[in-house]
Amino acid sequence: MMMKRVLTLVLFLSLFGLLAHNVMEMPGKFTVDAPAYNDTTQHYLDNAPSETGAINVVGAILADYRAFDTLGETIVLFTSIVAVASILKVTDKKTREESHDE
């Protein structure tokens, strides 16, 4: 049992080492030259107030540029409710009576 615990610990520490080695290759200085700060971001920052009228760029992207994403995400919420209700709310009369008998 002890052996197993030590083995998992070593395994996960080596996994952390691997991941850490990989992220050390990423650009460390957080500047506007980073690859993630590309033309798309610059376009949003420059044009969001004039194109959408909203000065909060996060809100402008969320509800205008990428509103379709947000629609999909509300559908995810809807699906989660349907899934939870279908698991927890037993509306079938026969099943309910059986569970009361137990």
């Binding site: 107030p49 004039s50 959408t52 009228g53 909203a54 000065i55 809100g59 402008a60 509800a63 205008d64 509103a67 947000t70």
Partner: peptide, 15 residues
């Protein structure tokens, strides 16, 4: 007017 309460078109309604 960008920056005022009534701006942004449909964004507040969507919110």
């Amino acid at each position: 007017t960008p920056g005022s309460m009534f701006s942004g078109g449909m964004i507040p309604l969507l919110m």
